[in-house]
Write a protein that binds this DNA or RNA. Structure first.
Length: 108
DNA sequence: CTATTGACGACAT
DNA sequence: CATGTCGCCAATA
């Protein structure tokens, strides 16, 4: 059950839906995700959208980071985000994704 | 309808 | 490389 209880806008649902396509062990960016939903400049809005998400690793909101490879935020705290990523092989060093360009998943 | 807010991004210092 | 600014977009008050 992916907690798709309502109260979310179409935009938010669309964002979460695309986000689910990010494979484990990889990461994407708010920008790439924004482009995937059809609004290239809505990276910020995307961040707000995933923030409201029902969370739980069901929707891999922990695999979304800044376009420059920095960690970005997380509703459960940055520590949890790092833990989750580490559990699937993605290492974070000094707030940055290690080998970011190699494990980056672009929706494009 | 306007103002504020925020898990962003690109660029200038 | 480390700040600071400004622009963007959707959601909310």
């Amino acid at each position: 059950m992916i907690g798709y209880n309502i109260k979310m806008t179409d935009f938010e649902l669309l964002v979460l839906r695309k986000l689910r396509l990010v494979p484990k062990g990889k990461v994407t960016s708010y920008k790439s995700l924004a482009r995937a939903v059809g609004v290239p400049a809505a990276a910020r809005a995307v961040g707000n959208a995933v923030n409201k998400n029902p969370d739980a690793p069901v929707v891999p909101c922990h695999r979304v980071v800044y376009s420059d490879g920095r960690l970005g935020g997380y509703a459960h705290g940055s520590v949890m985000k790092i833990e989750l990523l580490a559990s699937e092989g993605v290492m974070v060093k000094n707030g940055k994704i290690v080998d970011f360009d190699k494990i980056f998943f672009d929706f494009k």
